[in-house]
Design a protein around this nucleic acid. Sequence first.
DNA 1: ATGGTATTAACCGATTCGGTCAATGACACA
DNA 2: TGTGTCATTGACCGAATCGGTTAATACCAT
Lengths: 205, 205
Amino acid sequence: MNDKFFDLPKEKQERIINAGFRVFSRNSYKKSPVQQIADEAGISKSLLFFYFKNKKELFLFLMKKVEEITTQALLASKCYEASNIFDMMYLGLQAKVGIMKDYPDITNFSVKAYYDDDPDIRDDVRKIVQPYTQLETNQSIPPLDPKDFKEGIDLRLMYRDMYLASEGYIWQMSQTGVIDVARILQEYKEMIDFWRELYARKENT
Amino acid sequence: MNDKFFDLPKEKQERIINAGFRVFSRNSYKKSPVQQIADEAGISKSLLFFYFKNKKELFLFLMKKVEEITTQALLASKCYEASNIFDMMYLGLQAKVGIMKDYPDITNFSVKAYYDDDPDIRDDVRKIVQPYTQLETNQSIPPLDPKDFKEGIDLRLMYRDMYLASEGYIWQMSQTGVIDVARILQEYKEMIDFWRELYARKENT
DNA sequence: ATGGTATTAACCGATTCGGTCAATGACACA
DNA sequence: TGTGTCATTGACCGAATCGGTTAATACCAT
């Protein structure tokens, strides 16, 4: 790709990136016209081909951009340093909501790209996604110390409950399109506090 | 449309319907080729145009089919007659899983169709979906009697928790594609029993 | 004016699309 | 075997769309 892309004003770069996320998230790779990306970015198709030598390069650039954005945001959120599972989940979702405010279609884009089996891109996508797959805040249960929680709670099911509800949250958000960060975070905080009250052991010395 | 479609063996009808769900769920209406639907259904494009006079008619037929399938399945599940919220949610999800076994792409299809704003179909889609939108097992909280649940539980948040987790469940399912009904229902039953233990008042006379 | 850079309109060959239609296959009955 | 009926298809069409190129233009500092 042409490095002059990075000399563009940040705002224009992001307009192009978001246009790419948006168009590629609505159709498969093959069925996503470069022309439409250019239109939504407010530039000409020729200019897009000036910065990216072809459609594939643009697509893979966006793919890598997803990885960069998410890893950086999760790191900055300090969710990995949280002292308990509730803060951890809140910070994690806070980071994701922040991302989706700046890049509303990034979630749908990455899901779509991941499952696209077009031979033109399939292998390259796998290669980019692979190291990133394991790291992600995942369905795998983090280490939980039973003495932090009320007695008799099945920690496996507790975590599954919270994990699935969070996924449901993000999914709803990615569908409706409207992302009111403040409202969403306040609602999610209610949810987290509800869980904390429900699950956490209080009489902690 | 040509009524002879309904004279076809049920299995062939369903093959065509599922092919339609699948193709239309992966791309927008405009970008979904009729040829591909015919291929996945194992028939010729000409035959598809024999049963449906054009692409739009086929699409709207599928749209109505979604409504028919879901309302009928939810009714048959008797989830509306359940005596408590836990049974109700279980029966509801059981019905949806059953649907997704027979029609793996129906969820993604209906979501995609709902948000497709192609002027060729937009208005007709709204017209079909409208009466169906209100009925659906929704985010709106069903009437819950506080004396059925443990004291101090915020019923609004309790329901939101369960609702979102269920949505998360369905979303995960619709993505992975593999639908192992038995395993999923057993896992969900675990989840429901966990909630019942957590939320329901036990010392019921 | 001049020179360099960012940006575009116009264009191209190839492909794909929705839709049509004449031809073929399958099967029943004579 | 001949014939009629009906389901099904291959081949085709004009129009539209696609990715990508290129020569020309707009912009701006000197």
